[in-house]
Write a protein that binds this DNA or RNA. Structure first.
Lengths: 188, 188, 188, 188
DNA sequence: TCCTAAGCGAGACGGTACGTCTTGTCTTCCA
DNA sequence: TGGAAGACAAGACGTACCGTCTCGCTTAGGA
């Protein structure tokens, strides 16, 4: 039973690897299920017995590869930039799994994981700057807008940094990004 | 000859209108060429004689509808937020053509126009904050990152504001957004 | 008024010429209306104002070119082969307008004119051998079969002879063919 | 593995049946691939994975239906008409699979199979009457012409007989036809 | 040791959308 | 006013993917 599971894990792993390789080659949108299973030497039905779609396989990537991936930083534990969110874990994890990260959130990737990650970053930011906004309906809206925009900013830094193959150390990019975000909220 | 052109314009217009309606109904990715032409009462070959793809039709939308659309603000002419980019024209044009704008850059839209617009905003920002960055290779990279992130921020505000059906006046959102962007660059 | 007619005739003529040239190039079935009118430098609507279809244009070919074409021989006036149909006019006309004939009844042509011609030959043969068949229903059927078959035979000779660019004199092929046909009916 | 083949055979069979039915309804040329697959309840891609075209499907008809079809008679084994080709098998097979035969060689059919069959009959005839022709170039040509014409004659009889739903017994039509052919060659 | 159930490859299949092609109709402009 | 130009609706074509499915093969684990 346990070795059956191991077999399944192996299949899932090779599927994720194939998908990542193909994304980096030709972009997520242009990858077909047929190409994935051909490269993985896996039957069509096997693919669909594990995943409903390409999207699901993409999202399962980190788990299949045994990479505890985008653990966003703990907002409570203040990072280097005392007044911004702690982005170091995010940049660190991404940078240390460059291929995977590029495939999932780089320019060749689709929106699937990107928007998911953006949302999580948004929540982190919201937590961090919760006290800056009032309780009125208007203030709630502004809060949402600022957090969305901040998340977009972080994503922008992250994607650019990855695509450039990390021209700066993790700490520097994380801190600079965090400071930029913090500054956005300055007059709030 | 001239009335032939008029006929063509009519066809193009109805095609764009159909596309926009369909995007708002079901999302850009889910719209098929067949649906567009069915709704427009246009032959398949007519569609392809004018456009190579859905994407092209989307991009031609403003022109077909006679809307001088995303004229990004003049970076030289300082807007309300003295120290930020002049975003008022952008928000104004978008807000005044809400359906079109939502279809092209809203959550239901695809990346086609969105990335195009983001790029143009990025350039506007770069122009505005050119003097904040040095000439070293490193500085150039940071400049790019900041401008990309700023553009993402603007897009974030814009999309959210449109999707919410403009809960704030054009001027207010534009100025708030511009100020947030300006603040990002504060220690640059 | 008369010069208008002349203009029309000119248009029809060039259409027929274009069609014939195209048939010889690529076979009747593969010729499109667009190609015909392009080569003829004629508008699409002009074509359709004169003819309903490619087929009709083909059939009008002889008239447009001023060629009194497939005047099948007079069955009454006995030809060289005293006991067969007088096929000389048929072979003669065809041979003397080789390009047209090949286009209309050769291997590259379609069935349109071919079947038409075959039918007329069949009638000629029926006339010639009317007296060989009785009046019973069965006899009528046999008569039809024999005449059809005879017409097919003539067409076979004619097509082969044209495609070979007339390796025998008109008189010889016509007579040989007529004799073969006559012999088919021998025990009738 | 074998049952996969069986599945394929079933698909091919139903495709052929659909094509035949449609030919008889509206003529080969007017049948579209869409109609075939609709009637067969088969996907478009399934059709094209088995056949490149309507033509190919038509030619595969006999095999798909398990009918060893147009086995032309053995020219060596003399048929009823001692001096003509043995056409009995041809007429017999055709008559016993009337629908298929009509679809493939009848008036509603196209040229695809018809010309193929005609060619085979021509070869049969050539074999039978080989000794009647000399070895000169001219004689070779005449031989070709006569054989073509004879084949056309046989086809004529066959098609007419099928379209009439076989008003004569197989043996009678075969013999009459064979005799007519034989007579064509009489003075050769 | 054999048996049975699951994972799996292979790939046929129905379906849908694509972009191309051709047809026959229609409208506009020009000579 | 007739013909050239060509836009147009219609719809078939052959291709590409998708997600479902059926089939045998392999391979463990429990009997």
């Amino acid at each position: 039973m346990e070795s059956v599971d191991r077999r399944i894990q192996k299949t899932k792993k090779i599927l994720s690897e194939s998908l990542i390789a193909l994304i980096l080659e030709k972009g997520y949108e242009n990858v077909t299920v047929q190409e994935i299973i051909d490269r993985a030497n896996v039957g069509r039905s096997t693919f669909y017995s594990h995943y409903e779609s390409k999207d699901q396989l993409l999202l399962a990537g980190p788990e299949n590869l045994g990479i505890r991936f985008f653990e966003a930083g703990d907002p409570a534990k203040p990072g280097a930039a005392a007044d911004g969110p702690d982005l170091l874990p995010l940049f660190r994890h991404a940078g240390r799994n460059l291929a995977l990260a590029k495939a999932m959130i780089g320019r060749k990737s689709g929106d699937v994981f990107t928007s998911h990650l953006k949302h999580r970053i948004g929540e982190m930011v919201r937590e961090k700057f919760r006290h800056r906004f009032g309780k009125s309906k208007q203030e709630k809206i502004w809060q949402r807008y600022f957090c969305d925009a901040a998340a977009a900013t972080v994503m922008g830094f992250l994607i650019a940094w990855l695509e450039d193959d990390m021209p700066f150390p993790e700490a520097e990019i994380a801190e600079t990004c965090a400071r930029a975000v913090a500054r956005m909220f300055k007059d709030r």
